[in-house]
Nucleic acid binder design. Structure first.
Lengths: 148, 148
DNA sequence: ATTTTGTTTTGAGTAATTCAAAACAAGTAC
DNA sequence: GTACTTGTTTTGAATTACTCAAAACAAAAT
């Protein structure tokens, strides 16, 4: 039976996917385990105070390991750096603000996941559907001059 | 009545959106006007033989002008350079091959465009939905060792 | 023909990310 | 507990895709 990798201590989650438990991995996983979406630089700046010897390159390496083991999801919205989130395994989607670039989650558009079926696939076998909605967030709607 | 910017000569299409007609613009628009998806470098290499003085920066500038005038669409699949296509105004989507990175069009997933409605929008007002399917293309399915 | 406005060239710069080799630490076996 | 093996992190550099700015230039308007 598959383990739920979204609960438990950071250490237990690392062990559950067979990754060695190291201080940088614990710190990065913690930094990414609150709701929201963060880029590598932000993760680095969250990790640095506690673990000043951890390099940005190590953060990239840890994030890549977490993504490929399924503990973390990586999204790459057009026009911004890659973002990482700890909400995994539920095939949710994202809204991006055209004005300020902020990102929020949206639940699967139609029914259960996989929720989308293309009408023709050009011979591709489809694994996942990734949806990005583009719009304007509430703060930017109320401010004619969006907050920068 | 809105003009169909996908037909006519390159010159007519440029004029229809109020852009000055220049040699680099004609060449870039031609290079992008066959079916498919091309990155800026590829466009540059298509334009160079006929117009050797056209710089890569000019190609970026022309593509940006064509995109913002609606003559060309820009897509930015995760993990690869931005791609440009001349099929505009029909809200179609894309499939990307996880193995070789190739991109193909897929028609709108469900019914007419806009075909997707998120169940909750977190206060965003939604303008467009962008769907990317990830899968494996036919050539990569038949080759166990994918062509590199 | 002249002027105005917008475009392209030239040259440089930047952000995000990746690569490679050496130093190091976690986990495993003894 | 110590030594070994394997995987991880550090350090330092490189690369890719793209953007910026100023000067030269060309299209379109007058």
């Amino acid at each position: 039976m598959a383990q739920d990798t979204t609960v438990g201590t950071a250490e237990a989650r690392l062990r559950s996917v067979g990754l060695k438990v190291t201080a940088p991995r614990l710190a990065v996983l913690d930094a990414v385990s609150t709701p929201g979406h963060r880029d590598a630089d932000t993760v680095f700046s969250l990790v640095s105070p506690q673990l000043p010897k951890t390099s940005l390159q190590a953060v990239y390496g840890v994030l890549a390991a977490l993504v490929s083991s399924g503990l973390v999801r990586k999204i790459e919205p057009a026009g911004s750096a890659a973002l990482y989130e700890s909400r995994v395994g539920d095939n949710h989607h994202h809204v991006a603000c055209l004005s300020c670039g902020s990102i929020a989650d949206v639940d699967c558009a139609i029914g259960a996941s996989p929720c989308l079926t293309p009408s023709n696939t050009n011979g591709f076998s489809i694994h996942v559907a990734e949806v990005t909605f583009w719009g304007v967030c509430a703060p930017c709607q109320s401010a004619d001059t969006p907050a920068v």
